[in-house]
Design a protein around this nucleic acid. Structure first.
Length: 563
RNA sequence: UGGGGCGUGGCGAAGUGGUCUAACGCACCGGAUUUUGAUUCCGGCAUUCGAAGGUUCAAAUCCUUCCGCCCCAGCCA
């Protein structure tokens, strides 16, 4: 699909301004995920912002793993995240890891200690909380706050050497226990953890905290603009404090060492009817409420990918929702619009029947058959044509027949005439029902003079339905997805698990598809005409069993009015 | 009740003193075209910018007060 112009937003204005007035010669951003879960649509916004902005302004962007908490992180997550960023179509300048900076970080901690700006504390977690104060009351100084630098250094070195147990000591920045900004009340910068790190192995038993690590990582990489979400606004004071109080080697900073990276915050976007928090996603996955991180009902990037969303559609979605300083709630329809736009232009048209109803054309000779040559796309000739077989017995969709149709139902009913798309007009003469009254088969007659859209007497045939030749049909399992929740904001509910939409996955085991789908490659996308957009399931589809996922339905003004 | 943010139509979002009776996208409502009730196309959809005052010839844009919502008290990020 066509590439949307780069959207205007306040960060674009700030950065291009920094370029214009010569503050920077180039801009350098980074996308800094923690490898402790899978990426979702919220991350896509940040990815598109960071990579997209750099791309737009001719700058650079790193992919950096913010991996300072070994207990929650893993190689599996890291690889999945890296692959998702690449899948979205972005190229990083460098692939970085905060864990690669552990030596530097340790050195900077020592520097702070020597300057009297950090101290080793032995308050336990509970005491620490008490000393910290509350939102409205200032904190109070730890009894260890004035420990001499030499002693702090000794203690810190012994922390690193593994002499103390977890929780026995922490290293804290010495800032201001009376600050109204709680993140400035002597924040912890190192904690003891005897944990194996997926990259650093067992080299360390002390690990740096986010606030300390992040700003320094940015500086080391020469990042000019450090974009993050709103909840880090208070942390910005700390970000600046650390960078102001350590000595950065000029050659490490990229731009002559004269400039510190600047943190800029933007608002998160939430999609209606979904959950995005890592905790909740992990719960859905590990408790088996969905089938893995890549369940097509999830708005994880791997889930969307398996569902059939294209990278371009997600990038356009991110461009569409914008970047501002306020948190927003995005309508599902915006996401659906993005993928429909892409697939409308690019998907091959085919016929597929999800709920087959057998239809016999009684005046069509038995054993006879013919093929129609039809366009793969109604407007794009370059997509070519294909042959679809037709015969005496076909399948139509159960939804295209009603026993007692209302006047504005254009499809089939007893005695009614419709056109088989690309084929003949047929009239329904007989309805076969089982003992429960279910319609099991239709007997129709066709009008041989109605091929190629014509009628012999000029009569208009309003109703057009799709069909699949019974003799040539390909059996398939088709999975139709609906929103995982019926609640617009399930994340806000006490029990978001019980809110799961029980009909979020419908499986049609008896679907019938036109044979041309067997010629397709596994990453092709299709429009089942009059139904929706579909792709092969990347996990379960194989040579012996056709399995397809519905990415999104077609807009359906008929279904809408009947609801 | 400390600190930090944010409030423009149903949802997003432009706009930073005059061309704003406020762009654009989504949604919605018409109507045209159509062998997909799809697509496409045309048209409609805030006299009003959280509220109230004030400054000004002139405000969504400046000032004041008020109201509402979000974030911060992890040895998470």
């Amino acid at each position: 699909m066509s590439k949307a112009p780069y959207p205007n937003h306040f960060i674009r204005a700030m950065t291009s301004n920094d370029l214009k007035n010569g503050k920077h010669d180039y801009i350098y951003t980074r996308f800094p995920p923690e490898p402790n879960g899978y990426l979702h649509l919220g991350h896509a916004k940040s990815i598109c912002l960071n990579f997209g902005l750099a791309e737009h302004l001719g700058g650079k962007c790193n992919l950096r793993f913010d991996d300072t908490n070994p207990e929650k992180e893993s190689l599996e997550y890291m690889e999945a995240i890296r692959d998702s960023v690449a899948w979205l179509g972005f190229e990083w300048e460098k692939l970085c890891y905060a864990s690669d900076y552990y030596d530097h970080l340790y050195g900077f901690a020592l520097e702070l200690i020597d300057k009297g700006l950090a101290y080793v504390d032995n308050l336990n977690a509970e005491q620490m909380r008490e000393y910290r104060g509350t939102l409205t009351e200032v904190g109070k100084d730890s009894p260890n706050r004035d420990r001499a630098p030499a002693e702090n250094r000794d203690l810190f070195e012994r922390m690193r050497a593994g002499e103390f147990g977890e929780g026995a000591y922490t290293l804290r920045a010495k800032i201001d226990m009376g600050s109204p900004n709680i993140s400035m009340r002597d924040p912890i910068i190192y904690r003891i953890r005897f944990a194996h790190h997926y990259r650093a192995g067992d080299k360390w038993c002390i690990y740096p905290m986010y606030d300390f690590t992040h700003c320094i990582s940015d500086a080391l990489e020469g990042i000019t603009h450090s974009l993050c979400t709103l909840e880090f606004q208070d942390n910005r004071a700390l970000y600046d404090w650390f960078l102001a109080n350590i000595t950065l080697e000029e050659n490490l900073i990229g731009e002559k060492g004269k400039l510190m990276p600047r943190q800029i915050e933007f608002g998160r976007s939430n999609l209606e009817y979904t959950v995005a928090s890592k905790r909740k996603l992990i719960q859905l996955v590990t408790q088996g409420h969905v089938n893995g991180w890549d369940d097509p009902r999830l708005t994880t990037l791997v889930g969307l990918r398996r569902r059939g969303y294209t990278p371009a559609s997600i990038r356009n979605f991110c461009a569409e929702i914008g970047v501002t300083k306020k948190d927003s709630t995005i309508d599902m329809a915006v996401l659906e619009n993005a993928i429909r736009q892409d697939l409308e232009a690019s998907a091959t048209r085919v016929f597929g029947v999800l709920k087959p109803l057998k239809l016999v054309i009684t005046n069509y000779a038995e054993g006879e058959s013919e093929t129609f040559t039809v366009k793969n796309h109604p407007k794009d000739e370059t997509m070519g044509t294909r042959e679809i077989p037709f015969g005496r017995e076909i399948y139509i969709d159960q939804d295209d027949f009603m026993l007692e149709p209302p006047a504005d139902f254009f499809r089939l009913g007893p005695g009614r005439e419709v056109r088989l798309r690309y084929g003949y007009a047929i009239t329904c003469n007989e309805v076969i029902q089982d003992q429960h009254g279910n319609v099991v088969e239709l007997h129709c007659t066709y009008d041989p003079l109605t091929a190629k859209g014509k009628t012999s007497d000029g009569r208009k045939i309003k109703g057009i339905i799709h069909w699949v030749s019974a003799a040539h049909a390909v059996d398939a399992q088709v999975r139709v997805y609906d929103r995982l929740y019926n609640e617009p904001n399930p994340g806000a509910a006490e029990d978001f698990i019980s809110l799961i939409n029980p009909e979020s996955l419908q499986t049609f085991d008896n679907a019938k598809l036109e044979p041309s789908v067997l010629d397709a490659s596994t990453d092709d996308r299709f429009q089942f005409e009059r139904v929706g957009y579909f792709c092969f399931d990347s996990v379960d589809h194989c040579e012996n069993k056709v399995v397809m996922n519905r990415t999104v339905s077609l807009r359906d003004t008929w279904a809408k009015r009947t609801v």
